[in-house]
Amino acid sequence: MAIIEARNLTYTYPLSEKPAFKNVNLSIEKGEFVLLTGPSGCGKTTLCRCFNGLIPHFYGGKLEGEIIVAGLRTVDHPIHELAQHVGLVFQNPENQLFALNVEKDVAFGLENLGYPRDEIRRRVDWALKVTGIYDLRSKPPFELSGGQQQRVAIASVLAMQPEIIVLDEPTSFLDPLTARNILEVIYQLNRSLGITVVLVEHRLDLVARYANRIIVMNNGEIIADGEPRRVFLDENVKLVGIGVPKVVKLYLLLKEEGFDLGRVPLSPEEAYEAIAEVLAHDRG
């Protein structure tokens, strides 16, 4: 069975008349790296809040249809139980760190769950090492850079050893190099630990190469869902105007002129190979 399964899911915030999203059908398998994107206000953040039960338990409102995460119907289980299966990392790193030093922050979830002390210590050290911030463990949060703070936020959900990590625009306040390093950490969680990743991002140029699947939302509906190369060619996606990576744009521009590079490139490296191949082929 899929690890995240949504059927005809529709949600309306309290005091709102229009649903934030409607009739969402979604099935995410264990181990996938899913990129969720779409214009601002399309409902992607709202959808993320359903994955660990913040919706409906924290936000209230009206949730119709069904959503099952890690085998649990989220409406029937409290957030703290779902939190052990789904880790949520938010956009602003500053507002998800509460403690006065890094390791205490990473321990927070496990403390709440009442784990024995030596188990907490073991898991905290592990999470700090995996995210590369073990040396920062006794620093206060305000002495950390934005990138380091976001690593702490990731480590602190990782310590609960969830099967799924959902990240809502985790790099939007970061400069490109730092953003790339954070995405590399997330990719490693997916690759070496097999954690299912759902990543919300606008900056497709940075993320396209990591994801095995892209879901595009617009106006509260899923308008495209599939393998990145296919989604980038989708006519619906073009109309919404999500910012495809520059190399994809180049591919599309060449295609308009009647030159097909064969495969949609997801990185400059792939674009280079495709172009070199076409040139060599035509020469030969």
Binding site: D175, P176, L177, T178, R180, D205, P245, K246, V247, K249, L250, L253, P268, E269, A271, Y272, I275, A276, L279
Partner: peptide
Amino acid sequence: ASLVLPEVTQLFMRLNDLGFPRKVISVY
């Protein structure tokens, strides 16, 4: 400056060995 080259530039840095210019930033 701890930034990352534009994608198009990254591509043309490589394409340079096929005789393309390096200094390209615009996709057009």
